[in-house]
């Protein structure tokens, strides 16, 4: 190893410590920092492809499995179950991907690089929002693959290309919103295993106490009441309207409102918990 010397140059002089300094990060800077950290997250995804299994292998396996196991029992035959289950599985798969968002955040926060993020003059929300923006890609892959497998086994979405595109967009937006719940767990959890544990505990009721796999009208009263206000149900109903009818119905509005409520509650909680950790 050659000796390490810093050449003396005029331009190496330090910046002026007495200059006026902004006390907050502006909106444009926050956005740019978020996108930079999203870039980092996509580089990471590219280099460890195993983090993509939940949005690639899982839709492939689950879609076929659920359609053929439950199809006959729930809807009489597989073909008439497909419009219900494919759209339901999109909700379920995206929610699983959200769990991974939280777990990966925890793993990431335990590495040294987060220490540097904390001490940089960047918006406190950027290290949270960056990976979440990158995860939009994961939700996109998950929903497109689920539709593709569905179509391969005979699902014909009545909404056509536009309807399906709208459904995919809504699924991505819903994934981003619901991810705030799991991001909060990711921040407050003691370690990655604990985060995974709490997240699954929350994910299962959210998925199964919804209209994802079966119509809610056979559920007992209290369960049904929950299933009908469950944001996951709202999103799945809206996805069904878009993909199967090609219609932008009031249900889409309800889904968007549900997403907004989740963000309004969990985003501030997450940012506050994150700041306290920092």
């Amino acid at each position: 190893m050659s000796s390490l010397t810093v050449p003396e140059r005029g331009e190496m002089s330090v910046s002026d410590p007495t200059a006026d300094l902004p006390s907050r990060v502006g909106l444009a800077d926050t956005l740019s920092q978020t996108l930079t950290l999203a870039w980092r997250a996509t580089m990471k995804m590219r280099r460890s492809m195993e983090v993509m299994f939940d949005v690639t292998i899982q839709p492939l396996v689950f879609t076929g499995m659920f359609a053929y196991i439950f199809g006959g029992a729930v809807a009489g035959d597989v073909d008439s179950y497909l419009p219900l289950i494919i759209t339901g599985l999109i909700g379920q798969t995206v929610l699983t991907a959200c769990v991974a968002t939280g777990v990966q955040l925890r793993t990431d926060m335990d590495t040294g690089v987060f220490d540097r993020f904390k001490v940089l003059p960047i918006a406190r929300i950027a290290p949270l929002a960056g990976p979440m923006v990158a995860d939009l890609l994961r939700y996109f892959i998950a929903s497109v693959l689920t539709f593709a497998v569905g179509i391969a086994i005979g699902y014909r979405p009545g909404g056509g290309v536009l309807g399906v595109a709208g459904a995919v967009l809504l699924a991505m937006l819903a994934g981003w919103s619901l991810a705030w719940i799991f991001t909060l767990f990711g921040i407050v959890g003691r370690n990655a295993q604990a985060v995974q544990g709490i997240s699954l505990l929350v994910m299962f009721p959210l998925t199964f106490l919804s209209n994802a796999f079966v119509p809610t009208d056979t559920m007992p009263g209290p369960l049904r009441a929950f299933a009908e206000v469950n944001p996951v149900s709202l999103v799945i109903t809206a996805i069904r309207d878009l993909a199967n009818e090609g219609a932008v119905t009031g249900n889409v509005g309800w889904a968007l409102l549900g997403c907004a409520v989740v963000i309004a509650v969990f985003a501030p909680l997450s940012v506050r918990a994150f700041n306290r950790k920092m």
Partner: peptide
């Protein structure tokens, strides 16, 4: 610069 290198291992 901390006691443990705070750079991104994946990059």
């Amino acid at each position: 610069t901390g006691q443990y290198a705070s750079v991104d291992e994946n990059l």
